[in-house]
């Protein structure tokens, strides 16, 4: 093999479609920010936004921009990023391309726990902590139930998860039916997946950044895990440790997203597949890009949800479901041939 062939191989591996992706990601981020700031109950022009950002313009516009829309797009970005990250992690952990926290009932577990804490009047950190316990318990229950009824295959795991998700849905409905009236409307809106009603804190963006930074060093091991547990172990990966880590990380990330914005489905499913389609399944790219694309996608979806029927606001979860369900079906059809055997 000659040197130029080596060089071309090096180029193929290290730069395949990377520059396009960087440009695309940048464009997506700018588009999302711009749309998130202009769209809403009151449409603002680019001109007005730029002035307001520079500290000029009318106080009303400045208030709308800084007090309402900025926090809102930051929240949407964090939640979208966290959900996409959660989907990515669950897809590796469960070795199932259709894994998504919403579809598998992981979000449902978090929502039930969070709802119970809210009804009990617990402070925010308790709500979040319990949501984590809820999502972790749901994931564990998913694995145990699937294992108890037979071997863990991708299809059976998915079926068990869907059944669990509807179970959690029923519990949520029950809790809402039993809860006192005045709080009901806000809770219902929060649960349907809405960025304006949650009890969440501003720390979510920090959580997203930390999650990506902490997970990134393990990206190489996640890649190896794609070959299966035995193969990964023989390639020197501590599969047990890394899978427990994945499990805890996915549960935590889901819990934060659910406490912030309720049950927003399908972001965790769509985004990792979009990124894989663009740059492949290498987790060194997948993890950060899933966070960025997931965040941008939810900011866009939220802007759409605010402006479609303005001044009424749609739950953003409704929009992501409209986007996600067709894709889920496409993947299911494709998966029968290649991924789920």
């Amino acid at each position: 093999m000659n040197r130029s062939e080596d060089q071309s191989g090096r180029r193929i591996y290290f730069q395949r479609r990377l520059s396009t992706t960087v440009i695309l990601t940048g464009a997506l981020l700018i588009l999302a920010c711009f749309t998130g700031l202009t769209e809403g109950g009151v449409s603002l022009s680019l001109h007005q936004i730029l002035w307001a950002l520079l500290g000029r313009g009318t106080p009303v516009i400045r208030t709308i921009l800084w007090q309402l829309r900025m926090p809102r797009i930051l929240m949407a970005f964090s939640v979208g990023g966290l959900l996409a990250l959660s989907g990515t992690l669950l897809q590796v952990l469960l070795r199932n391309p259709l894994a998504d926290p919403y579809v598998l009932g992981v979000s449902g577990g978090a929502a039930v726990a969070a709802l119970l804490s809210l009804l009990g009047g617990l402070p925010l950190y308790w709500v979040m902590g319990n949501a984590f316990i809820g999502s972790a318990a749901a994931t564990l229950l998913l694995l145990v139930l699937t294992r108890l009824t037979g071997p863990i295959t991708p299809t059976r795991l998915l079926l068990t998860g869907i059944v669990m998700a509807s179970g959690f849905g029923a519990i949520v409905t029950l809790l809402l039916a039993l809860s006192p009236d005045p709080t009901l409307h806000a809770m219902l809106f929060w649960l349907m997946g809405n960025l304006g009603y949650g009890p969440g804190s501003r720390l979510s963006l920090l959580a997203l950044i930390l999650a990506v930074l902490l997970l990134w060093p393990f990206a190489g091991q996640l890649n190896v895990l794609l070959r299966g547990v035995d193969a990964a172990q023989s390639l020197g990966v501590h599969t047990g440790r890394i899978m427990i880590g994945l499990y805890l990380a996915a549960s935590l990330v889901t819990a934060i997203a659910v406490t912030d914005a309720g049950m927003i489905g399908f972001v965790g499913l769509i985004v990792p597949h979009m990124v894989r389609f663009a740059v492949g399944a290498d987790h060194r790219r997948l993890l950060p890009l899933a966070a960025l694309w997931g965040g941008s996608l939810l900011v866009l979806a939220d802007a759409l949800a605010r402006s479609l029927l303005a001044p009424r606001e749609l739950p953003v979860g409704v929009l992501t479901a409209f986007l996600g369900i067709p894709l889920f079906l496409v993947l299911l059809a494709r998966g029968n041939r290649s991924w789920t055997r």
């Binding site: 191989g9 193929i12 591996y13 897809q91 590796v92 070795r95 391309p97 060093p217 990206a219 190489g220 091991q221 890649n223 190896v224 794609l226 070959r227 299966g228 035995d230 193969a231 023989s234 390639l235 020197g236 990966v237 894989r276 492949g280 399944a281 290498d282 060194r284 290649s338 991924w339 055997r341």
Partner: peptide
């Protein structure tokens, strides 16, 4: 191994590169 998981779609080159994993540094 006798059976290999189909896994998620890495390219052929990326898959074979996984064989280098035990030889790589911390960041892989």
């Amino acid at each position: 191994l006798q059976e290999n998981d189909p896994g998620l779609p890495l390219s052929v080159l990326e898959t074979v590169l996984l064989g280098r994993h035990p030889h790589l540094g911390l960041l892989g």
